[in-house]
Simulated assay, not measured.
Amino acid sequence: MVGIDGSEDILDPSLLVAKDSPPVLICQGTHDGIVDQKIAINFHKTYKKRGNSKSELILLPYAGHASNSYYSGNYNQLFIYYMERFMYQFR
């Protein structure tokens, strides 16, 4: 959508995810005009299929690609809240 070329392989999470992959917190806006939320959902599901439970997915309702352009925005505050708790689990 934004003129980025490349191989479709980058969309295949099975090439990126293994049982010992590091923890990942995926935060995706439901109204993202650049990255389809199906990609985030598929990435999260691949973690689970590979037996890796260190993946969490947050779908932010009505959020776009960048959510907010300033730090104190609602979506940024939600992300920081969940990111801190996610990171605490793996300290």
Rank of each mutant, 00 (worst) to 15 (best):
M1W: 06
V2M: 03
G3E: 01
G3W: 00
D5R: 05
G6A: 11
E8Y: 10
D9K: 02
L11I: 10
D12N: 07
P13Y: 00
S14C: 11
S14R: 13
L15R: 09
L15P: 06
V17W: 03
V17R: 08
V17L: 02
V17M: 02
V17K: 02
A18Y: 14
K19E: 04
K19P: 06
K19D: 03
D20I: 02
D20L: 04
D20H: 09
S21V: 04
S21Y: 07
S21E: 06
P22F: 04
P23F: 01
L25T: 04
I26D: 00
G29P: 05
T30D: 05
D32I: 10
D32L: 04
D32M: 09
G33W: 02
I34Q: 05
V35T: 09
V35P: 00
K38L: 07
I39T: 13
A40G: 11
I41N: 04
F43Q: 08
F43P: 03
K45I: 06
K45F: 01
T46G: 08
T46A: 04
T46R: 08
Y47M: 05
K48I: 15
K48Y: 10
K48S: 09
G51T: 00
S53E: 15
S53F: 06
K54S: 14
K54P: 02
K54A: 14
S55P: 06
E56M: 06
L57E: 02
L57K: 00
L57P: 02
I58F: 13
I58D: 13
L59W: 07
L60F: 14
P61W: 03
Y62L: 12
Y62R: 10
A63E: 09
G64D: 15
H65S: 04
H65G: 07
A66C: 04
A66K: 02
S67I: 07
S67F: 15
N68K: 03
N68W: 04
N68Y: 07
N68P: 03
N68T: 10
S69W: 07
Y71I: 15
Y71G: 12
S72C: 09
N74K: 15
N74E: 13
Y75N: 11
N76C: 11
N76A: 11
Q77K: 03
Q77I: 08
L78N: 05
F79E: 14
F79T: 12
F79V: 13
I80M: 11
I80A: 10
Y82I: 06
Y82F: 12
M83Q: 13
M83V: 01
E84K: 15
F86P: 14
Y88I: 12
Y88C: 12
Q89R: 15
F90I: 12
R91E: 15
